[in-house]
Design a protein around this nucleic acid. Structure first.
Lengths: 199, 199
DNA sequence: TGTACATCAGTGAACGCGCGTTCACTGATGTAC
DNA sequence: TGTACATCAGTGAACGCGCGTTCACTGATGTAC
C-alpha cells in the first residue's frame, strides 16, 4: 500500500536532513490511501526508512503527525480554490459570478479527488482558527458580488455561511455516496440559482 | 465509559432472549460515547455480560455490528425530522414554510445532540439505498412548497438537493467546530431567505 | 407423558497481530578555545 | 589548525496492550415419535 519512494539503501546518510517533512509527506500519502483511522506511525517511519522512535524527535505523538497532515489538507484545499478563482478578475458582474461558480466547483473537486485528505482536514485534528475567522477568499468574493450588483445587499447577511454549508454538504454527501458525482453540476446550478448568481 | 445497564449477575438465564438487540443498544451507547472508530466488540460484549464470541452468532463480524448501528442512526434521524414536521399540516403556505424550517432545525439539532451517531449514519457503513432514492419526506415538503405558491416552480429543480446539502453542511461544520452552535439560527434564517421561504 | 436427539446460543481459552511508546544507546555535527 | 565536548538525530530492542476472531466445548430448548 505505501508509496515506496523511500531510499532505505546504504547511500542514505545517518542524518536524514528533513525527516520531519519526509514523515509528513509519507503520512499524507498513506492517509490518502487508507484513511486517517488506519494510519500507522510505524508504517510511515518504516516507509521513510527510519526507525519508529525517530519520529518522536519531530512529533510529540501520533496525533501531532495527524495534525500536521490535517493542516496540509486545509492548505491544499485553499490553494485549489484560490487558483481556480484567480482566473476571474474582480469588479465585473459576470466575472464575479464565474468566480463564485469556480470556487464551489474547486471545493467539491478537491474533495472528490482527495477524499481522505478532505476528511481529515475537517476532522477536528486541525486546530481551530483563532477567533473562528471567515475565509478571506470568500468574504472578498461576496463583497464583490454585492458591489457588482449581482447579489442584493439585503441578502448578504449570512450568505457566506450558506454558500459554504451548501458546497461543503454537497462534497460530503458525494463522498459518502448519497449523491452521485455526476449530479454535482445540476446541484451546483440549482444552488447558484438560489443564490441569485444565475438568471 | 460504558453504560453499565448490564445484568451480569446470576439471575440472568443462559439464553439471553434478545442478545442481538442488546448488543446493538450497547454498541449505540458506546459509539455515542467514544465514536465509531473506538468501538470495541469485546467491550460491547463484556458490557452486555456475554463472552465476545457470543456476538458472532448474531453478526458476521464487527463491521456488521457497526452497520446495524449506522442503520439505527439513520432511522432515528428520520424519526426526529418526521415528528418535527408533523406539527405543521400540508396545504397552506405559512404552514409549509414552518414545516421546512422545522425540518432543517430538527436535522441540525439531531446532529448536535448525537454527534457520533450522526457521523456513523453518514460514514458509508450504511448500505446505499437502492436506486439512491430521495427522502420522501423532503420531496413531499417541496411539492407542498410549490403547490402553496411559496417556491416558484422554476426553482423547484434541484432545490431538495440544495436544501439537504446546506443543512447537512451546516450540521457537519458545527460538529467539526467550524461554526459555533449559536450561529445556527442566523445561518438557517439566511438559508431560508435564499430559498425564498422568508420575506 | 416420556424420551432421544437435532439445533441453537452460549462459554472460555487461545491465537496472532500490529500498534504506540519508552529507553539506553550511538553516530554525526558544529562550536569554543 | 586541532582537539574536547555539548548537542542533536538517529538506532534497535523491548514493553504492554487490547483487539478481532477461531475453536472445541456445553447448556438449554423444542420437536418427533
Amino acid at each position: 500500500m505505501p508509496g515506496s519512494t523511500s531510499t532505505p539503501t546504504k547511500d542514505r546518510p545517518y542524518h536524514h536532513g528533513d525527516l520531519r517533512g519526509a514523515l509528513i509527506l509519507e503520512a499524507i500519502s498513506q492517509v490518502e490511501a487508507v484513511g486517517m483511522e488506519h494510519l500507522s506511525l510505524r508504517s510511515v517511519a518504516h516507509e521513510v526508512g527510519v526507525s519508529p522512535s525517530a519520529a518522536y524527535h519531530h512529533f510529540a505523538d501520533k496525533d501531532a503527525l495527524l495534525t500536521a497532515v490535517a493542516l496540509e489538507g486545509v492548505a491544499q484545499l485553499n490553494v485549489s480554490m484560490a487558483s481556480a478563482m484567480a482566473r476571474y478578475p474582480r469588479g465585473e458582474a459576470a466575472s464575479a459570478q464565474e468566480r463564485a461558480s469556480a470556487a464551489g466547483l474547486a471545493y467539491i473537486t478537491f474533495a472528490v479527488d482527495h477524499p481522505n485528505l478532505f476528511r481529515i482536514a475537517f476532522s477536528g485534528h486541525c486546530p481551530r482558527p483563532p477567533e473562528r475567522e471567515k475565509n478571506p477568499l470568500i468574504v472578498e468574493l461576496f463583497d464583490d458580488l454585492v458591489a457588482t450588483g449581482v447579489l442584493p445587499a439585503e441578502l448578504r447577511e449570512g450568505s457566506e455561511e450558506v454558500m459554504w454549508s451548501a458546497v461543503h454538504g454537497m462534497a460530503t454527501l458525494v463522498l459518502e455516496g448519497m449523491f452521485a458525482v455526476d449530479e454535482v453540476p445540476r446541484c451546483l446550478a440549482a444552488l447558484e440559482r438560489m443564490m441569485r448568481l444565475r438568471p
